[in-house]
Simulated scan of single mutants.
Amino acid sequence: MIDALIAGRLYGIAEQRTGHAGSNYVTCKVKAMTDDGDSIMCNVIAFNETIRQTLLRLEDGASVSLSGALTPKVWTDKQGNARPALDLVAHSLLATGQATPNEQD
Rank of each mutant, 00 (worst) to 15 (best):
D3V: 13
A4D: 04
L5N: 10
I6Y: 05
I6E: 03
A7Q: 11
G8T: 04
G8K: 00
R9Q: 08
A14Y: 05
Q16N: 12
R17Y: 11
A21W: 08
A21L: 14
G22L: 09
G22Q: 05
G22W: 09
N24S: 15
T27K: 11
T27R: 10
C28F: 03
V30Y: 02
V30A: 04
K31V: 01
A32Y: 00
A32C: 13
M33D: 12
T34V: 05
T34D: 11
D36F: 05
S39Y: 10
S39R: 06
M41W: 12
M41F: 15
N43P: 06
I45D: 04
F47H: 07
E49L: 08
E49H: 07
T50Q: 08
T50D: 11
Q53K: 09
Q53V: 03
T54G: 00
L55H: 00
L58F: 06
E59D: 13
E59T: 14
G61Y: 02
G61P: 02
A62N: 01
S65M: 12
L66D: 02
L66V: 04
S67W: 05
A69K: 15
L70P: 01
T71S: 14
P72K: 07
P72M: 07
K73W: 02
K73A: 13
T76M: 07
T76H: 01
D77C: 06
G80Q: 08
G80V: 08
N81H: 11
R83N: 07
L86G: 04
L88H: 04
V89E: 13
L94S: 11
L94Y: 03
A95W: 06
A95D: 08
A95G: 05
T96K: 14
A99I: 05
P101G: 06
